[in-house]
Design a protein around this nucleic acid. Structure first.
Lengths: 109, 109
DNA sequence: TAGATATATGTCCATATGGGTATACGAGTT
DNA sequence: AACTCGTATACCCATATGGACATATATCTA
Protein backbone atom coordinates (compact mmCIF):
# COMPACT_ATOMS: atom_id res chain seq x y z
CA UNK A 1 0.00 0.00 0.00
CA UNK A 2 2.49 2.64 1.05
CA UNK A 3 4.07 3.49 -2.22
CA UNK A 4 7.75 4.26 -2.08
CA UNK A 5 7.52 6.85 -4.79
CA UNK A 6 4.69 8.50 -2.97
CA UNK A 7 7.01 8.76 -0.01
CA UNK A 8 9.75 10.34 -2.02
CA UNK A 9 7.36 12.72 -3.70
CA UNK A 10 7.49 15.08 -0.78
CA UNK A 11 10.63 17.20 -0.63
CA UNK A 12 10.47 17.46 3.12
CA UNK A 13 10.62 13.71 3.48
CA UNK A 14 13.52 13.55 1.12
CA UNK A 15 15.29 16.16 3.18
CA UNK A 16 14.69 14.02 6.22
CA UNK A 17 16.12 10.99 4.52
CA UNK A 18 19.08 13.04 3.37
CA UNK A 19 19.63 14.18 6.90
CA UNK A 20 19.61 10.56 7.98
CA UNK A 21 22.19 9.40 5.49
CA UNK A 22 25.02 9.73 7.92
CA UNK A 23 23.28 7.79 10.62
CA UNK A 24 20.61 8.09 13.19
CA UNK A 25 19.37 11.45 14.31
CA UNK A 26 17.08 12.73 16.99
CA UNK A 27 13.97 14.66 16.14
CA UNK A 28 15.39 17.90 17.41
CA UNK A 29 18.43 17.29 15.30
CA UNK A 30 16.28 16.77 12.25
CA UNK A 31 14.26 19.84 12.99
CA UNK A 32 17.43 21.88 13.00
CA UNK A 33 18.72 20.37 9.81
CA UNK A 34 15.54 20.57 7.81
CA UNK A 35 14.15 23.93 8.84
CA UNK A 36 10.78 22.38 9.46
CA UNK A 37 8.62 22.75 12.50
CA UNK A 38 8.90 19.98 15.02
CA UNK A 39 5.34 18.74 14.51
CA UNK A 40 5.88 18.56 10.80
CA UNK A 41 9.03 16.58 11.26
CA UNK A 42 7.28 14.19 13.59
CA UNK A 43 4.42 13.90 11.19
CA UNK A 44 6.61 13.01 8.26
CA UNK A 45 8.73 10.70 10.35
CA UNK A 46 5.57 8.94 11.32
CA UNK A 47 4.74 8.41 7.70
CA UNK A 48 8.23 7.23 6.92
CA UNK A 49 8.11 4.87 9.84
CA UNK A 50 4.72 3.45 8.99
CA UNK A 51 5.99 2.82 5.51
CA UNK A 52 9.04 1.05 6.81
CA UNK A 53 11.47 3.58 5.45
CA UNK A 54 12.95 4.43 8.80
CA UNK A 55 13.25 2.79 12.17
CA UNK A 56 13.01 4.25 15.61
CA UNK A 57 15.20 3.64 18.59
CA UNK A 58 14.33 5.19 21.89
CA UNK A 59 17.11 6.49 24.08
CA UNK A 60 15.77 8.18 27.12
CA UNK A 61 13.51 10.93 26.00
CA UNK A 62 15.13 11.11 22.65
CA UNK A 63 13.80 9.31 19.63
CA UNK A 64 16.55 8.33 17.29
CA UNK A 65 15.58 7.62 13.73
CA UNK A 66 17.58 5.91 11.06
CA UNK A 67 17.06 4.80 7.52
CA UNK A 68 16.07 1.22 7.14
CA UNK A 69 18.19 -0.85 4.87
CA UNK A 70 16.60 -1.50 1.53
CA UNK A 71 13.80 0.89 2.20
CA UNK A 72 14.07 2.54 -1.15
CA UNK A 73 14.96 -0.61 -2.95
CA UNK A 74 11.67 -0.88 -4.71
CA UNK A 75 12.03 2.56 -6.22
CA UNK A 76 15.60 1.91 -7.11
CA UNK A 77 14.71 -1.32 -8.83
CA UNK A 78 12.04 0.30 -10.88
CA UNK A 79 14.41 3.00 -12.01
CA UNK A 80 17.25 0.63 -12.68
CA UNK A 81 15.57 -0.52 -15.82
CA UNK A 82 15.66 2.92 -17.32
CA UNK A 83 19.19 3.40 -16.17
CA UNK A 84 20.37 0.38 -18.05
CA UNK A 85 18.24 1.44 -20.89
CA UNK A 86 19.96 4.73 -21.36
CA UNK A 87 23.43 3.74 -20.43
CA UNK A 88 23.52 1.11 -23.10
CA UNK A 89 21.96 3.48 -25.53
CA UNK A 90 19.57 0.83 -26.68
CA UNK A 91 16.27 2.22 -27.80
CA UNK A 92 14.00 -0.72 -28.34
CA UNK A 93 11.60 1.04 -30.58
CA UNK A 94 11.71 -1.56 -33.28
CA UNK A 95 7.98 -2.14 -33.10
CA UNK A 96 7.23 1.48 -33.37
CA UNK A 97 9.75 1.91 -36.11
CA UNK A 98 8.17 -0.85 -38.14
CA UNK A 99 6.11 1.57 -40.19
CA UNK A 100 9.07 3.75 -40.90
CA UNK A 101 11.56 3.40 -43.75
CA UNK A 102 12.97 0.11 -42.49
CA UNK A 103 15.47 1.06 -39.88
CA UNK A 104 17.16 -2.31 -40.09
CA UNK A 105 15.76 -4.81 -37.64
CA UNK A 106 17.98 -5.46 -34.73
CA UNK A 107 18.78 -9.01 -33.79
CA UNK A 108 18.52 -10.34 -30.29
CA UNK A 109 21.98 -10.75 -28.95
CA UNK B 1 10.01 22.89 -10.42
CA UNK B 2 8.43 19.75 -11.80
CA UNK B 3 9.72 17.21 -9.39
CA UNK B 4 10.61 13.87 -10.86
CA UNK B 5 9.54 12.01 -7.79
CA UNK B 6 6.25 13.78 -7.83
CA UNK B 7 5.80 12.48 -11.33
CA UNK B 8 6.56 8.94 -10.33
CA UNK B 9 4.32 9.17 -7.32
CA UNK B 10 1.28 8.44 -9.38
CA UNK B 11 0.86 4.78 -10.33
CA UNK B 12 -0.96 5.63 -13.51
CA UNK B 13 1.96 7.67 -14.73
CA UNK B 14 4.32 4.88 -13.89
CA UNK B 15 2.14 2.50 -15.84
CA UNK B 16 2.33 4.84 -18.77
CA UNK B 17 6.09 4.98 -18.56
CA UNK B 18 6.20 1.22 -18.28
CA UNK B 19 4.07 0.94 -21.37
CA UNK B 20 6.52 3.21 -23.14
CA UNK B 21 9.56 1.19 -22.25
CA UNK B 22 9.49 -0.73 -25.47
CA UNK B 23 9.21 2.32 -27.60
CA UNK B 24 6.80 4.94 -28.69
CA UNK B 25 3.10 4.34 -28.43
CA UNK B 26 -0.02 6.09 -29.54
CA UNK B 27 -2.57 7.33 -27.06
CA UNK B 28 -5.07 4.67 -28.02
CA UNK B 29 -2.38 2.09 -27.55
CA UNK B 30 -1.64 3.43 -24.10
CA UNK B 31 -5.28 3.51 -23.21
CA UNK B 32 -5.55 -0.15 -24.07
CA UNK B 33 -2.46 -1.08 -22.12
CA UNK B 34 -3.18 0.90 -19.02
CA UNK B 35 -6.89 0.41 -18.60
CA UNK B 36 -7.37 4.10 -18.09
CA UNK B 37 -9.86 6.33 -19.80
CA UNK B 38 -8.57 8.22 -22.79
CA UNK B 39 -8.93 11.63 -21.16
CA UNK B 40 -7.03 10.44 -18.14
CA UNK B 41 -4.26 9.12 -20.31
CA UNK B 42 -4.06 12.38 -22.19
CA UNK B 43 -4.07 14.29 -18.97
CA UNK B 44 -1.20 12.35 -17.48
CA UNK B 45 0.70 12.41 -20.74
CA UNK B 46 0.34 16.13 -20.70
CA UNK B 47 1.90 16.26 -17.28
CA UNK B 48 4.68 13.93 -18.31
CA UNK B 49 5.31 16.00 -21.38
CA UNK B 50 5.33 19.30 -19.55
CA UNK B 51 7.83 17.82 -17.15
CA UNK B 52 10.02 16.68 -19.96
CA UNK B 53 9.62 13.00 -19.18
CA UNK B 54 8.21 12.11 -22.55
CA UNK B 55 8.26 13.55 -26.03
CA UNK B 56 5.58 13.71 -28.64
CA UNK B 57 5.79 12.95 -32.31
CA UNK B 58 2.82 13.56 -34.50
CA UNK B 59 2.09 11.12 -37.25
CA UNK B 60 -1.12 11.95 -39.01
CA UNK B 61 -3.82 11.97 -36.44
CA UNK B 62 -1.86 9.82 -34.12
CA UNK B 63 0.23 11.20 -31.33
CA UNK B 64 3.16 9.00 -30.62
CA UNK B 65 4.77 9.38 -27.24
CA UNK B 66 8.09 8.09 -26.11
CA UNK B 67 10.21 8.33 -23.03
CA UNK B 68 12.82 11.02 -23.13
CA UNK B 69 16.31 9.88 -22.51
CA UNK B 70 17.55 10.78 -19.09
CA UNK B 71 14.13 11.89 -17.96
CA UNK B 72 14.32 10.01 -14.72
CA UNK B 73 17.97 10.62 -14.25
CA UNK B 74 17.49 12.99 -11.39
CA UNK B 75 15.52 10.45 -9.40
CA UNK B 76 17.95 7.74 -10.25
CA UNK B 77 20.86 9.83 -9.13
CA UNK B 78 19.25 10.61 -5.85
CA UNK B 79 18.60 6.97 -5.20
CA UNK B 80 21.99 5.85 -6.35
CA UNK B 81 23.48 7.07 -3.17
CA UNK B 82 21.38 4.72 -1.10
CA UNK B 83 21.99 1.93 -3.52
CA UNK B 84 25.70 2.14 -3.17
CA UNK B 85 25.16 2.51 0.50
CA UNK B 86 23.35 -0.76 0.86
CA UNK B 87 25.13 -2.78 -1.77
CA UNK B 88 28.44 -2.19 -0.12
CA UNK B 89 26.89 -3.21 3.11
CA UNK B 90 28.19 -0.14 4.80
CA UNK B 91 25.74 0.88 7.41
CA UNK B 92 27.21 3.75 9.28
CA UNK B 93 25.02 3.05 12.18
CA UNK B 94 27.67 1.57 14.32
CA UNK B 95 26.40 3.59 17.18
CA UNK B 96 22.96 2.18 16.78
CA UNK B 97 24.09 -1.37 16.30
CA UNK B 98 26.32 -1.30 19.29
CA UNK B 99 23.67 -2.66 21.62
CA UNK B 100 22.34 -5.32 19.28
CA UNK B 101 23.45 -8.92 18.88
CA UNK B 102 25.65 -8.66 15.82
CA UNK B 103 23.36 -8.54 12.80
CA UNK B 104 25.82 -10.54 10.76
CA UNK B 105 26.31 -9.05 7.34
CA UNK B 106 24.61 -11.03 4.65
CA UNK B 107 26.84 -12.60 2.09
CA UNK B 108 26.29 -12.25 -1.61
CA UNK B 109 24.68 -15.42 -2.92
C1' DT C 1 -18.71 18.56 -47.08
C1' DA C 2 -20.17 15.12 -43.87
C1' DG C 3 -18.65 11.63 -41.00
C1' DA C 4 -15.41 8.98 -38.49
C1' DT C 5 -11.26 8.53 -35.93
C1' DA C 6 -7.65 10.22 -32.65
C1' DT C 7 -6.51 13.17 -29.17
C1' DA C 8 -6.91 17.17 -26.15
C1' DT C 9 -9.23 20.15 -22.96
C1' DG C 10 -12.72 21.99 -19.69
C1' DT C 11 -15.45 21.38 -15.79
C1' DC C 12 -16.90 19.37 -11.68
C1' DC C 13 -15.97 16.72 -7.68
C1' DA C 14 -14.22 13.87 -4.02
C1' DT C 15 -10.17 12.99 -1.79
C1' DA C 16 -5.45 13.22 -0.21
C1' DT C 17 -1.86 16.02 1.52
C1' DG C 18 1.05 18.96 4.21
C1' DG C 19 1.61 22.82 7.23
C1' DG C 20 0.57 25.43 11.47
C1' DT C 21 -0.90 25.89 16.15
C1' DA C 22 -2.24 24.12 20.32
C1' DT C 23 -1.98 20.42 23.22
C1' DA C 24 -1.04 15.86 25.13
C1' DC C 25 2.28 12.52 26.66
C1' DG C 26 6.51 10.49 28.42
C1' DA C 27 10.98 10.68 30.52
C1' DG C 28 14.33 13.05 33.11
C1' DT C 29 15.34 16.63 36.74
C1' DT C 30 15.02 19.20 41.02
C1' DA D 1 5.21 16.38 42.91
C1' DA D 2 6.26 20.16 40.00
C1' DC D 3 8.82 21.46 36.18
C1' DT D 4 11.25 21.00 31.86
C1' DC D 5 12.70 18.86 27.77
C1' DG D 6 11.74 15.95 23.71
C1' DT D 7 8.38 14.17 20.92
C1' DA D 8 3.78 12.89 19.27
C1' DT D 9 -0.99 13.81 18.18
C1' DA D 10 -5.40 16.49 17.17
C1' DC D 11 -7.57 19.70 14.72
C1' DC D 12 -8.20 22.96 11.18
C1' DC D 13 -7.41 24.69 6.66
C1' DA D 14 -5.79 25.71 2.05
C1' DT D 15 -4.26 23.47 -1.78
C1' DA D 16 -3.14 19.92 -5.05
C1' DT D 17 -4.56 15.87 -7.38
C1' DG D 18 -6.70 12.56 -10.27
C1' DG D 19 -10.82 10.70 -12.25
C1' DA D 20 -15.22 10.99 -14.94
C1' DC D 21 -17.94 13.00 -18.32
C1' DA D 22 -18.85 16.02 -21.93
C1' DT D 23 -17.01 18.52 -25.50
C1' DA D 24 -13.68 20.71 -28.55
C1' DT D 25 -10.11 20.17 -32.08
C1' DA D 26 -7.61 18.03 -35.76
C1' DT D 27 -6.89 14.72 -39.29
C1' DC D 28 -8.25 11.46 -42.38
C1' DT D 29 -11.91 9.30 -45.45
C1' DA D 30 -16.09 8.66 -48.26
Amino acid sequence: MPDVFRLLADPSRRRLLDALRDGERSVTDLVARTRMSQPSVSKQLRILRDSGAVTLRTAGRQHLYSIREGALREASDWLSYYDRFWREGLRRMDDALRDRPRPRTRRRR
